[in-house]
Structure formats: C-alpha cells, structure tokens
C-alpha cells in the first residue's frame, strides 16, 4: 500500500518517476535556438519556455511564461511546476544594447535563476556558454582544453558578461553538488540563428583581413541541441567544449558558400568597421575582427568521451545552412 501512496504523492506534485521525463524549463525560449530546443523536447516531456518576448508559433503543449528573468514572477514559475531541469540559453548578445542593460540581464537575471534552481532543488542545470570565452589570441594553443583561461574579455568587453555567467555557473557547480550542473561551450553556431558568425557569413561579399586566414570551427544549431540532449542525461556534470565535425580555414568556408571575399588590411578594416558600427551600418563591433585574425578553437574530446556527443552534420552542410533561410 505504501508504494501506491508514494506514487500518489509524486503524481500530485507533477514529477515523473523516470528521470529525464520531468518538466524542462528553457530560458531564452523565443530565440532561434530556444525554439529549436523546445521543438526537440516538447513531445518527450513537459516544457516551459521563459522569455519576455512573445512566442506566437509555439507548439500547443508548451507553456510559455512571458516573464523577465530579473522579475520575481520567475519564482512563481518555479513554484507552480515541479521542474526537473533548467536549460539556460537566455544570454543577451545584442551589440546595440547598453552595457548596463546587458549586465543586469545577463548577470543579475542569471543570479536570480541560480537562486531559484538552488531553492527549489532542481536536479539538473545546463548553461549554454560559448567557446568565445577563451577569446581569439595569437598565442592560443590550436585546440584549447576546458581548463584554459577565459581571456575573451581582455579586448572584447561584451564578452565579459558571458564570462561572468560561465564563472557564476562554475561557482554554483561547487556550492550545490545536488544539482547536476553542465556548462557547454560551443564554437561558432551556424544555422537559422542570428548571431555574429551566421550574420557574417550571410553578407553578400565577405570581408576578410589581408594576410590572415585562421582555422575556425563551426557547429550547426541542431548539433548544439544534440549536445544539450547529451547534457540532460542523468549523472552528467561538468564543463564541456562542443565543436562540429572538423576545423577548416576561413577561406574554405567562403569558397563553400560560393561568395567573393574582399581582403582588407587590418588597420584599415578596424578603422572602417569602427566608423560603420558607430553609424549603425554594421552590426559587428570591432573586437569581433580578432575572430577572423587569430585562432580560437577548442578540443571537444571530453564531450565526445564523457557526454557521448557526436556531431551529425558535415562541415559543408553546417556552413550552407546559414543561407538556407534566405530562400525559404
């Protein structure tokens, strides 16, 4: 009889007895990647999307909590549903937003989220960081391991928020061992997403830096979702670099897209981009230039071994996916 009683208690609280089927909370749900994550998981388990933006085309069985993660209302979301896992994608990358807004959203908002994860003893937390936290440097090892220093903020202040989020998660990892915390650091994500890397490759003519052609790694958004799936599996915890199939020179990517590139000397390019950005003619802040100048590649051996992650799409499919949307 006691068994039945226990089951009843669980069902009242809405938790699943099988791990991996409980409610999943996704922040940044209305971004392209967030939507992808939700479409992938909503048939397998209850999903709550958190985003202050509207979500008009959401699947019917997905609950959308339209809240700002900095607000108290977020706590109600945690209180009402028995949440088994949190996937945090809600990092703001808008290069036009003010530094204060960036910081309060990315860091203060995230701290609130961590607080609730701890308070409601959520068993799993997956945070999407980025390989950009390492930063492109002339003295980078060709493939950086997870314990490489996070130097991305040295020249690029917008990355500092992301590094802070990464560090906060690392602190949380040690302070709350009951929550299985996973940090994923994917390389440049390509696909339908609107990030700097994809937007750069969508330019009709691709500017490059004269005399520089670094090796780069790219990953398709669906492979990132694949990595999130691996990270959600029970017992997985830790920090993992995530990359696509294989690295290649930037010039090969341009060639794959069948586009022309204009090589520009670095100093000229820097001055030009600074002016264009100030005039709102370009959405790329100047420090992004270092990404087409120096290597910032990662060793994802740990994710492949421990998480069982395996990229599915070839480099060519990944690169060409940025253009797919233009014609559809």
């Amino acid at each position: 009889m006691s068994d039945v009683g226990e089951t009843e208690v669980f069902s009242v609280r809405g938790a699943a007895s099988v791990p991996g089927t409980g409610t999943l909370l996704v922040t940044g749900a209305c971004g392209r990647l967030g939507k992808g994550v939700i479409r992938t998981f909503h048939r397998e388990r209850p999903v709550i999307g958190v985003d202050r933006r509207p979500f008009p085309d959401r699947p019917k069985d997905v609950e959308h909590a339209r809240v700002d993660i900095r607000r108290k209302k977020l706590k109600d979301v945690f209180r009402s549903g028995n949440i088994e896992a949190v996937v945090h994608l809600g990092v703001m990358h808008d290069p036009r937003a003010s530094a204060a807004e960036h910081h309060s959203w990315n860091v203060a908002g995230f701290q609130k989220l961590l607080e609730y994860v701890a308070q409601f003893k959520v068993p799993k937390l997956v945070v999407l960081s980025s390989a950009n936290v390492y930063g492109p440097q002339p003295d980078n090892a060709q493939f950086l391991p997870e314990d490489a220093p996070l130097l991305g903020g040295a020249r690029f202040s917008e990355i500092r928020d992301l590094i802070e989020v990464d560090m906060l998660t690392q602190g949380f990892f040690w302070k709350h061992p009951t929550t299985e915390t996973v940090i994923l650091r994917p390389v440049h994500i390509l696909g339908q997403v609107r990030n700097a890397a994809s937007n750069f490759l969508r330019l009709p003519t691709i500017p490059t830096l004269m005399g520089f052609d670094p090796m780069v790694q790219v990953i398709h958004e669906s492979d990132v979702i694949g990595a999130i799936r691996c990270a959600l599996a029970p017992k997985m915890r830790g920090i993992f670099n995530v990359a696509g199939k294989e690295p290649l020179p930037l010039s090969r990517i341009v060639r794959m897209l069948g586009k022309t590139s204009i090589p520009i000397p670095y100093t000229l390019g820097k001055a030009l981009l600074k002016r264009l950005f100030a005039l709102h003619l370009s959405s790329f802040p100047t420090p992004e230039l270092d990404h087409i100048r120096y290597v910032c590649m990662v060793d994802d051996g740990l994710a492949r071994k421990t998480l069982g992650y395996e990229p599915k799409l070839s480099v060519e499919e990944t690169v060409l996916s940025v253009e797919a949307e233009r014609f559809s």
Partner: peptide
Amino acid sequence: LMSSGVDPFG
C-alpha cells in the same frame, strides 16, 4: 589530412 585538404593545424 581532413576533407578540406588541410590538417587540423592548417
């Protein structure tokens, strides 16, 4: 080499 004709170090 990899499929792009270079090795991982370029």
